[in-house]
Design a protein around this nucleic acid. Structure first.
Lengths: 204, 204
DNA sequence: CCTACCGATCGGTAGG
DNA sequence: CCTACCGATCGGTAGG
């Protein structure tokens, strides 16, 4: 009943996020998580009830973390005016700071698509709504390309950024020479900017 | 010693691809695969030696399938001249015909990044080389934007197409209203085209 | 938060 | 290609 700083619980969640992201939930035993957190397995079960309970707690913590970060990110990016590049760069840095979380999210999209969709709707739609609305307004003002689909564009750019962070270093092996993650990030920003802003004939 | 049409082996590979793609390798027991293929588990082990052997055989078959399809695809797309849209559309249709294979590839990128990178390098670089070279030539002729990074662009577009097919239906829940997979596909093609072709002032 | 214990399932082998 | 069997590991519980 008394709220308190539960460091053991936090340690379990941190290690579970890392291991689930790296190996997947099915590929990770709760024994591994317990050991990484420095406790025994029954203790982990005591805290989270079951492996499924741990999985949901990890996802809850993940979404809570992002719900807290995203607004800070949005305001920081638009501080010097609504610069698209700065926003995308901030999004990228945000994901690159937590590659394990990016991987976990991608895995969840594969393992439990419907459950993840529920969480995205509930937790992140308010913020992405700001993005799609900004694009729509920009289009109405003639500042952005009219042929862009604001909703599809937003989903594509976010999931592409996620994909580059989660799997970019190895999918780069598709071509020779292999582009660095930095190069992929830079190109994604260029692609997004170019396909959203109207053509500027002076810079072909 | 005698090569023959091994339908049991093929049935195992088909079911393994489906189940591994849907649930992951760690989340699938070889018992499940054997049952789906209509045999017993020891029979599966007899054919593939171990679960790890099955995994590698599944990946080999996957890459062989693509190595066989991609050239047909490339020539079909450029039949009516080097039309970028047609090529991207063909790539998309190619992935959408096999969503399980797309998911399996994405999972492998998460589970065994280095091993997948080896296979991509060995099996697909020859074909992606054709793409990057075509872009480079187009740039030299002034037909394509000079600021595009041919290698990063190729990796980004392929992995984005893969991501849309593998997880598009649920990541769409990021925004409201949720774009369809068709809308995501259409927008990715528009984004790719717009960011690769030079600006045409007559169509802002 | 731990020790001790449980049934179920895992991948794999023996032997035919 | 199967039946019968194996040790190891899984998630979870009892009890303190």
């Amino acid at each position: 009943m008394v709220p308190q700083v539960d460091t053991v619980r936090e340690r379990i969640l941190t290690e579970a996020t890392r291991l689930f992201g790296a190996q997947g939930v099915a590929g990770t035993s709760i024994q591994q998580v317990a050991q990484a957190a420095g406790i025994t397995r029954p203790t982990l079960v005591y805290h989270f009830g079951s492996k499924e309970g741990l999985r949901e707690a990890v996802l809850d913590a993940l979404m809570a973390h992002w719900r807290a970060e995203v607004p800070r990110l949005l305001s920081a990016a638009s501080a010097g005016g609504p610069r698209l590049d700065a926003l995308l760069l901030a999004f990228f840095d945000f994901f690159r700071r937590d590659p394990d979380r990016a991987r976990l999210l991608l895995r969840e999209a594969l393992d439990r698509p419907q459950e993840l969709a529920l969480r995205l709707r509930r937790d992140l739609q308010p913020y992405t709504g700001l993005l799609t609305q900004a694009i729509t307004v920009g289009q109405a003002q003639g500042l952005l390309r009219a042929d862009a689909d604001p909703h599809a564009f937003t989903v594509l750019v976010i999931s592409a950024a996620l994909g580059v962070v989660a799997t970019g270093a190895d999918t780069a092996a598709l071509v020779q020479p292999e582009p660095s993650v930095d190069a992929l990030q830079h190109e994604l920003i260029r692609v997004a900017r170019t396909s959203l802003l109207p053509p500027r004939p002076e810079n072909p």
